[in-house]
Amino acid sequence: MTSCHIAEEHIQKVAIFGGTHGNELTGVFLVKHWLENGAEIQRTGLEVKPFITNPRAVKKCTRYIDCDLNRIFDLENLGKKMSEDLPYEVRRAQEINHLFGPKDSEDSYDIIFDLHNTTSNMGCTLILEDSRNNFLIQMFHYIKTSLAPLPCYVYLIEHPSLKYATTRSIAKYPVGIEVGPQPQGVLRADILDQMRKMIKHALDFIHHFNEGKEFPPCAIEVYKIIEKVDYPRDENGEIAAIIHPNLQDQDWKPLHPGDPMFLTLDGKTIPLGGDCTVYPVFVNEAAYYEKKEAFAKTTKLTLNAKSIRCCLH
Rank of each mutant, 00 (worst) to 15 (best):
E36W: 06
L255H: 02
E8H: 15
L126K: 04
G273K: 11
I143W: 05
E290F: 07
P254S: 05
E9S: 13
K172F: 02
G79M: 14
A15T: 00
M139Y: 01
K224I: 03
N284M: 03
G212L: 01
Y288D: 15
K103V: 11
V90N: 09
L136E: 01
C152S: 04
G180D: 04
L192D: 02
N70H: 08
A7E: 15
T277G: 00
S131L: 05
T119A: 08
I143V: 09
G258P: 06
S131W: 06
T26P: 11
H141D: 01
M139I: 02
P245V: 02
N117Y: 05
M139P: 06
I226R: 07
T299H: 11
L69K: 06
W252N: 02
R56C: 12
A7T: 14
E129C: 06
F29W: 15
Q248F: 04
E40Q: 00
A202F: 03
V229S: 00
G237I: 05
L25K: 15
G27N: 02
L312K: 13
E8R: 14
P217F: 02
Q94H: 13
E129L: 01
A202W: 05
Y142M: 03
Q138K: 04
R56W: 11
F205W: 01
R233K: 11
Y279S: 01
D204Y: 01
H207A: 14
V278L: 02
P160H: 11
V229D: 05
R132S: 15
L115M: 09
T20R: 01
E9V: 06
N117I: 04
F29N: 14
S161N: 14
C152H: 02
G273N: 10
R309E: 01
C4M: 13
N97G: 09
P55E: 14
K103Q: 11
T302D: 01
I6W: 13
Y173N: 11
D68R: 07
P280I: 05
R63S: 12
E47R: 10
T277F: 02
L35S: 10
V58K: 02
C310T: 10
K213C: 13
A148L: 11
Y109Q: 01
V278A: 02
R168D: 08
F209V: 07
T20C: 12
T125M: 07
K172T: 07
Q194D: 06
A296V: 13
L69Q: 06
D249L: 00
K59L: 10
E89V: 01
L46W: 01
S105N: 13
G123H: 05
I226G: 08
D130G: 02
R92Q: 13
M139N: 00
C218Q: 00
A171N: 04
L255S: 00
A171K: 04
I143Y: 02
Y155I: 15
R168F: 07
R168I: 06
I112D: 05
A39R: 12
I127C: 07
L263P: 03
E8I: 10
G38R: 11
N304D: 08
A57C: 06
L187N: 08
H244Y: 04
I112R: 04
H116A: 08
F215N: 06
V283Y: 05
A148Q: 12
I170W: 08
I52C: 08
L86S: 12
I308A: 01
A294Y: 02
I111H: 03
E9L: 06
A296K: 10
D68M: 03
N121A: 09
C276G: 10
L86D: 12
C311F: 10
R43Q: 01
L147K: 06
L147E: 05
P102G: 10
L99P: 06
S146W: 08
T298S: 12
T145Y: 07
M261H: 01
Y164K: 15
I308G: 03
K103I: 11
F140C: 13
T264W: 02
N246D: 12
P280G: 01
Y289R: 15
I112G: 03
G45A: 07
S161W: 07
E158I: 03
L272Q: 06
I11A: 02
G45Q: 06
Q94P: 06
E47A: 10
C218D: 05
V278K: 05
D104W: 12
L126P: 06
T53H: 01
I112Y: 04
E238T: 08
E84G: 14
E178W: 15
L30I: 01
A202R: 04
P254T: 01
L272Y: 15
G267L: 03
Y231P: 04
E290M: 09
D190W: 06
I127D: 01
R43P: 06
Y279N: 00
S169K: 10
V31A: 15
Y173G: 02
Y64I: 06
I157A: 15
L162F: 13
D190L: 01
I52D: 04
A240M: 12
G27E: 03
K297V: 15
V179H: 03
T298Y: 00
T264S: 09
C310H: 12
T277L: 07
A57F: 05
I6D: 15
S131V: 07
S169V: 03
I6F: 13
Q94V: 12
F113M: 07
A148F: 13
M195F: 05
K59R: 13
I111G: 01
T145C: 13
F295C: 01
E235A: 13
E8V: 10
Y279L: 04
F205M: 01
K213N: 10
Q42Y: 10
K32N: 15
A57V: 02
G274M: 02
K224C: 00
P181Y: 05
F209E: 05
A219W: 07
L147F: 05
L247K: 05
V154S: 01
N37D: 13
C311Q: 15
R43W: 04
T62Y: 10
T53R: 03
H116I: 00
S169H: 09
E47Y: 09
Y88D: 07
H208W: 09
R63F: 02
H33G: 13
L255M: 10
A39P: 06
A171C: 14
E235Q: 11
N77I: 13
L46T: 07
I16S: 02
V186T: 14
P254K: 01
H201T: 07
G237T: 02
V278H: 00
I239K: 05
L187M: 13
I11T: 01
S3L: 09
V175K: 03
E89P: 04
A93Y: 12
K306C: 12
I52G: 05
A39Y: 10
I137F: 05
